[in-house]
Amino acid sequence: MSKPKAGTKEGSPLTDIDTLVHEPARLNIMAQLYVLEGADFLFLMRQTGLTFGNLSSHLGKLEYAGYVNVKKEFVGKKPHTMLRLTEKGRTAFRRYMQTMRQVFDELPSN
């Protein structure tokens, strides 16, 4: 059995947090793509406020993990790179939301 992450208790929902989704910029990207059917790179850049290079880097990681599908489409004669969450990505995002709810539900109320 793998060791729990440093600072976390074994069995606690904190150990289940998907760190790929948890990173704020990637969380923002995945939240955008979760509520949309698809968006191109420019739209994501505008909505997330990320720079070109930053967005590209994070999308690369998400695509490598199989969470985002990158597809080149033509709108009229112009090429567009359309981005969509895969089923794996949607499941991962839903699991992340559930985990975070558990984390905060288990916090002691003061």
Partner: peptide
Amino acid sequence: RYPLPAKGASDVKA
């Protein structure tokens, strides 16, 4: 607020 982006900004391979 939204100037025209550089050419090819919506066509990028991640």
